[in-house]
Design a protein around this nucleic acid. Sequence first.
DNA 1: CCGGTTCCTGTCCGAACGGTCAGCTTGCAC
DNA 2: GTGCAAGCTGACCGTTCGGACAGGAACCGG
Lengths: 187, 187
Amino acid sequence: MARPSTGLRERILDSALRRFVRHGFRGASLADIASDTGCSKASLLYHFSNKEAILAELLLPISREVTALDARLGGLEGREAAEAAVAGFVDLTLRFRRELKLLFDNLGDLDSISELHDEFEDVDALKRRLVDAMAGRSEEPLDRVAATMTLGGMLLTGTADHLSFDDETLREALTTGALRALGRTRG
Amino acid sequence: MARPSTGLRERILDSALRRFVRHGFRGASLADIASDTGCSKASLLYHFSNKEAILAELLLPISREVTALDARLGGLEGREAAEAAVAGFVDLTLRFRRELKLLFDNLGDLDSISELHDEFEDVDALKRRLVDAMAGRSEEPLDRVAATMTLGGMLLTGTADHLSFDDETLREALTTGALRALGRTRG
DNA sequence: CCGGTTCCTGTCCGAACGGTCAGCTTGCAC
DNA sequence: GTGCAAGCTGACCGTTCGGACAGGAACCGG
């Protein structure tokens, strides 16, 4: 179970990510993560000041990427916004499959985690802006629902164990499906 | 907060559903639900044998409906299967918005809840069959990804607070979006 | 050989959890 | 009035959780 050769800290993050995604932040206990890693619970808390710090470190990279994507989309309108949002989100989905699910599945818990407040202040508002861009700034129900569907689909697709396709196939399928749902067939 | 006029049991279920959806089954405590309902924690456990029994009762109606839908789709193939799956799932989404999210968000916890085993034995397999039908029994990556996207979109849409459309508008938008994503434009 | 730092752990603790139980109140049948 | 069942509760219990802490082992510069 334990592979003492690699850094313990990295192995802790790896176990924690797996446990968090599977059982949720609250559902995964430090004892679980410790036994999965092959070290003691006290050892976790030597490397990380507390449980939230582990989550914060797992979400740090993707939080930066999501924020950057949000900023990039800020100046775009209509079709440009929609296509850029889809492309950007597909990219994030592929690069951070599990982290993305972790982020959005635990939205409710996040605002009680002070350490993450510096990174993204309001994840819910961020989500709304992403949906807004994906809908091409349209207020039409169909566009907004399609955008929400697309976002939800990405999250589910990223961690669906029954979708064992390689990255490029998945990217192609996600992009095509999203643009279709949004009524913006490619070309 | 408390409305003593209505039956306490119904109010408990109502509070529990809200709390479970917002914080997850594990994340919502009996004390939370009790204070939300306006009664004591002991009172909850007078009406329900334990915490899981509350969840079981909340999920009972939708579990029947999902199982029925699954059975109905069993004999269909191709385009028929896909369209029936979309129509059926859109219907479920509209009728059980929060319950549907509750069901799929807590898949991991469900198999440790013995009381629900009689209703649906393997929720994960059920989900896979639904995706299979929605993909029109196709093995193509695009179809399967689109089906997964559609399913994920329904779940997110059902509880998205920023989609305040009436039922018929939402039904139309969900159906159209799903069929588009699946490459089966209506007609 | 020695003092210090780094890494790691066993053990303990308070808080929060789900759940139990004796007992209180109310209402109703007789 | 009396007995009894239903509805409800405060107080309590065992377990599990996140976290604190003192100390051991290994390494290293002097």
